[in-house]
Design a protein around this nucleic acid. Structure first.
Length: 163
DNA sequence: AATGACAGTCCCA
DNA sequence: TGGGACTGTCATT
């Protein structure tokens, strides 16, 4: 059975993100690429994907503007059981709040797997909407970020969080 | 199958 | 300030 995904661009004040949809929902969200690459739009899209994309566009722009999204598309990232549990825990962090890698590790029942939590954060396919940027190192240190620390700072700043 | 490298954290010297 | 143990995942060997 073929795996079907659709990639659609999202214009924001920060650049053009790229959203990937599977048949289940939003599977991946890419930060703006250094090289502006054109995305070919399919002539017609399934109704559910159009709806999800509108939700993704609105949610992404809301968060970038520091506002609570009115709604989210179904978030369907692909990953291991451990990664799924970490991503689920991250989604429970309210806007403007943060957790440490250690706190997330405890929440998923693996208090000693702190470092592995960092790995799962880095593997998060849906940054921003799955708020990996709200996970900091101990003592409110900034920690790392796959998309570049500038993005992490930018996203935290939009939520009024300063490290 | 084993090793090394990571978006971490704590402990002990 | 520095080194070791701990943990999940992936690339490399």
């Amino acid at each position: 059975m073929a795996i079907v995904t659709v990639a659609l661009p999202i214009r924001t004040p920060e650049g053009e993100f790229l959203a990937h949809y599977s048949g289940q929902g939003l599977a991946e969200l890419d930060f703006p690429q250094p090289k502006a690459h054109t995305v070919k739009k399919p002539g017609s899209l399934p109704a559910d994907i159009r709806i999800w994309h509108r939700l993704t566009e609105a949610a992404l722009n809301s968060i970038l503007a520091g506002k609570e999204p009115a709604g989210l598309p179904p978030l369907m990232p692909v990953g291991t059981a451990f990664q799924q549990s970490v991503w689920t825990a991250m989604r429970a962090i309210p806007m403007g709040h943060t957790r440490s890698y250690g706190e997330i590790a405890e929440e998923v029942g693996r208090p000693k797997a702190v470092r592995a939590v960092g790995g799962a954060c880095g593997a998060n396919p849906i940054p921003v909407l799955v708020p990996c940027h709200r996970v900091l190192a101990a003592k409110k240190q900034i920690g790392g970020f796959g998309g570049g620390l500038a993005w992490k700072r930018r996203l935290l700043e939009a939520e009024g969080v300063y490290v």
